[in-house]
Amino acid sequence: MKYICLGYIDEKVWEKMSQNEQNAFMDRCFSYDDELKKSGCFANGEALQGARNAATLRWKNGRVSVTDGPFAETKEQLGGIMVLEANDLNHAIQLMSKHPSLSMGGGCWEIRPTADLSAMVQESEARRRTREERIL
């Protein structure tokens, strides 16, 4: 089953690290990612640019409003996501507990089991089909 792991970091902690510290940290993270890939547990992953490059869309007064910045102005910001293939939540916790990124401090991994919407998708497709038929 797939688990989406949301990696939060304190961007200030990262910025305070020296170039050498950053390199050593990234090397440890990437080599653990390689281990996960070898064991077939790393389904996908993306790193994110800094939160200040974000745009947030909301529904306001009947239309979309675009604002700068991340959804929440908190110390920890989403820094990357990983799609993990694990047997169960305990397995996912086990795998992510060993992720070297946790040692940076100031951040966390939020593990979210994926929801199966296939039944919902099928129902929706049926509804939309019906509507199209009615038009005809």
Binding site: A55, T67, D68, G69
Partner: peptide
């Protein structure tokens, strides 16, 4: 651009 901070 609305994705920039207002002061920016």
């Amino acid at each position: 651009h609305p994705a920039l901070r207002p002061d920016a």
